[in-house]
């Protein structure tokens, strides 16, 4: 984690994220996800698939404790990072180690491109020298293949970019904090196919150093990029397997039904 005048990049360290009997309810008795237990393979891409309302986004948002913003949402069970229960850690720390990219690109309107990339540091009040800032901005934008396109207009408003570029900017913003995990909630649904392609390539590169969990509505995308897959139906984890295996020969009948429906 950069800061305090020192920069160091994560070595290829593998961090383990585990969910044990996790249930999330919006109101008493109504569960969005029920008793989900899974151990996420580190440094790989895991996709979460399922019909609308199956609980995919809820699952994602509970991992970085976003559900705590809404007092009526209750979580039971345990989510642990490297063995430590994330509920016992500070939410701020959890969110720095587990970054999130949303479905709609949403760069901060009041900041330019440069400031947007660094916004994680600014919001967390971490002081960086100018040299460090420049270095982080360049590396993050290069990681998302945006550097060559914007390096001469870093002080332009972030809203001047195309939708695809904005989404890559949001990913860069999250990457700048060097999280160990990346949660992506259907990040390419509002983006054209060419940009989607570039973002998928990006995810492929990122998985060397990060563990990525992607919610995918698009089965072809999920089968293209993910190493592992989880199928959720009505809040329950039906199947978790290597994606090649699951998409070709699902073990559970429900998974099979969903996959065949999607292909049609």
């Amino acid at each position: 984690m950069p800061g305090n005048g020192k920069l160091h990049y994560l070595m290829n360290k593998k961090h383990l994220l585990e969910l044990k009997n996790v249930s999330v309810s919006f109101s008493p008795g109504i569960y969005a996800i029920k008793n989900v237990s899974v151990s996420i393979k580190p440094c790989a891409i895991t996709s979460v698939i399922g019909a609308s309302g199956a609980g995919k986004s809820t699952l994602l948002r509970s991992i970085n404790r976003m559900h705590e913003l809404y007092p009526n949402i209750k979580l039971s069970g345990e989510i642990s990072l490297d063995g430590k229960n994330i509920m016992e850690m500070k939410p701020i720390e959890v969110r720095r180690r587990i970054g999130m990219v949303f479905q709609m690109p949403n760069p901060f309107p009041a900041m330019n491109i440069y400031q947007n990339v660094l916004s994680g540091y600014k919001l967390n009040k971490i002081y960086l020298s100018k040299a460090e800032k420049d270095e982080i901005v360049e590396k993050s934008l290069q990681d998302v293949a945006l550097w060559d396109e914007v390096k001469n207009s870093l002080n332009k408003s972030a809203l001047s970019l195309t939708v695809g570029q904005q989404q890559r900017l949001c990913i860069a913003r999250t990457l700048a904090l060097q999280p160990e995990f990346l949660l992506m909630d259907d990040p390419t649904s509002s983006i054209d196919p060419i940009c989607t392609n570039r973002i998928e390539e990006l995810m492929y590169r990122l998985k060397d150093n990060h563990t990525i969990i992607v919610v995918a509505h698009n089965l072809s995308q999920a089968s293209r990029i993910s190493d592992y897959a989880m199928y959720l139906e009505k809040g329950e984890l039906v199947e978790y397997d290597i994606s090649n295996v699951m998409f070709v020969a699902p073990k559970d009948k429900r998974t099979e039904r969903y996959i065949t429906e999607q292909i049609e």
């Binding site: 970085n64 976003m66 913003l69 939410p91 701020i92 720390e93 959890v94 969110r95 720095r96 970054g99 999130m100 949303f102 949403n106 901060f108 916004s119 994680g120 919001l123 967390n124 949001c170 913003r173 999250t174 904090l177």
Partner: peptide, 9 residues
């Protein structure tokens, strides 16, 4: 939410 997701207070 994006601000909070970056770990900000």
């Amino acid at each position: 939410e994006s601000g909070l997701a970056l770990g900000a207070s």
